[in-house]
Computed example of a mutant assay.
Amino acid sequence: MAKETISLIEIHELCVAALTNAGAHQAAALAVAGSIRDAERDGSFSHGIFRLPGFVASLRSGKVDGTAEPELSFPTPALILCDARRGMAPYALQRALPELVRATQRMGIAALAMRNSAHFAALWPEVEALAEAGLAGIACTNYLPVVAPAGARERLLGTNPLAFAWPRPNAAPLVFDMATAARALGDVQLAAREGASLPEGIGIDRDGEDTTDPAAILSGALIPFGGYKGSAISLMVELLSGSLIGQMSSLGNAEADNNDGGPPPRGELIIGLNPDLLSGGCWRAEAETFLKRLEAQPDLRLPGQRRHARRGHVTTTVVEADLIETVRALAF
């Protein structure tokens, strides 16, 4: 499949143009375009420019409101509610995350309940924003049912990602962002586009048989990582980002979705933790001793290190030529 090298600057410009053409206001378009550009920069290609046509489709269908202004409320000093009002999550998060940082700094532990937000990006930006403020963070969201729980054949769970960040003095934070499915849905979709096969243990076909064919998995189901253990973690994400904050499960999201290929507005839970307050100010030495012992292992890479290493030198990305042609058509 033909590829094209394109600058991150042009990626950003094309995304802004395509999103505003589809009805997003400038601030929302800039926020989403920034998340797409940063995903390409960091090598998270399944959350990069590949996602743009879905965002545009959801704006054009009216499922997502590109002009929505998020509404914030504060039921307690440690709880922020953000109703994105069917708006795009990166824009709503720009408004809500600073409030979570302030609440966590004051209270030690605080939570942000995001409601009705169209999330199509990676989760690491949320928790990384907390780590940059010297805080630890946890985030999770559900999706549409594309995963069959361990012991089942029916799609009942989302890919249900879970992200975590830990601050480090004088170093990039430790950050992981992972689907609780054996593979992120976007990675499977990219493999199907490219005609590539996947490793065993990623998904099943319509008959419930193991398969390495991404197209068969897309018509069948992904499976959780780690069997019953991953399935239990995915179930936790369903409840934390669904019922706990007054939102629907992945099944409920599917029932309300118009199947335009874009992100369904849904819930996300973000928890901030202040290690200074929780530890009495003595967390750094213990954590760094432990992490440096890990770093001393010759073949071990801490989560997030590769992503951060790319940031200092990556200015271009390689994208499928037909995808860029589609994006340019949406932009102009």
Rank of each mutant, 00 (worst) to 15 (best):
residue 183 R to Q: 13
residue 188 V to M: 09
residue 189 Q to I: 02
residue 191 A to V: 03
residue 191 A to C: 05
residue 195 G to R: 07
residue 196 A to I: 00
residue 197 S to F: 04
residue 198 L to S: 03
residue 198 L to Y: 02
residue 198 L to W: 01
residue 199 P to Q: 05
residue 199 P to R: 07
residue 201 G to V: 06
residue 202 I to Q: 02
residue 204 I to T: 03
residue 206 R to H: 04
residue 208 G to K: 06
residue 208 G to D: 05
residue 209 E to G: 12
residue 211 T to F: 05
residue 212 T to M: 10
residue 215 A to R: 12
residue 216 A to Q: 08
residue 218 L to V: 04
residue 218 L to M: 05
residue 218 L to K: 03
residue 219 S to P: 07
residue 219 S to K: 15
residue 221 A to N: 00
residue 222 L to K: 02
residue 225 F to P: 00
residue 228 Y to N: 04
residue 229 K to D: 07
residue 230 G to Q: 09
residue 230 G to W: 03
residue 231 S to R: 04
residue 232 A to W: 02
residue 233 I to D: 02
residue 233 I to W: 04
residue 234 S to L: 05
residue 234 S to N: 02
residue 237 V to A: 02
residue 240 L to A: 14
residue 240 L to C: 11
residue 243 S to N: 05
residue 244 L to V: 13
residue 245 I to A: 05
residue 245 I to N: 06
residue 246 G to Q: 12
residue 247 Q to F: 10
residue 249 S to M: 14
residue 249 S to W: 12
residue 249 S to R: 14
residue 254 A to N: 11
residue 255 E to T: 14
residue 257 D to A: 14
residue 257 D to H: 13
residue 258 N to R: 10
residue 258 N to G: 10
residue 261 G to F: 00
residue 261 G to W: 03
residue 262 G to W: 03
residue 263 P to K: 05
residue 263 P to I: 04
residue 265 P to G: 03
residue 265 P to Q: 07
residue 265 P to K: 09
residue 266 R to E: 00
residue 266 R to P: 01
residue 267 G to W: 04
residue 267 G to M: 11
residue 269 L to W: 07
residue 269 L to A: 08
residue 273 L to I: 14
residue 274 N to D: 13
residue 276 D to T: 08
residue 277 L to V: 12
residue 278 L to G: 06
residue 281 G to W: 04
residue 282 C to V: 14
residue 284 R to C: 07
residue 285 A to L: 06
residue 285 A to D: 15
residue 287 A to L: 15
residue 288 E to P: 10
residue 288 E to C: 10
residue 290 F to S: 14
residue 291 L to W: 13
residue 292 K to H: 14
residue 293 R to A: 15
residue 294 L to Y: 08
residue 296 A to R: 12
residue 296 A to G: 15
residue 299 D to F: 09
residue 300 L to A: 09
residue 301 R to C: 08
residue 301 R to V: 12
residue 305 Q to Y: 07
residue 305 Q to E: 15
residue 305 Q to R: 14
residue 307 R to S: 14
residue 308 H to I: 01
residue 309 A to N: 15
residue 312 G to D: 09
residue 313 H to W: 13
residue 314 V to K: 11
residue 314 V to G: 05
residue 316 T to P: 00
residue 317 T to H: 01
residue 321 A to E: 10
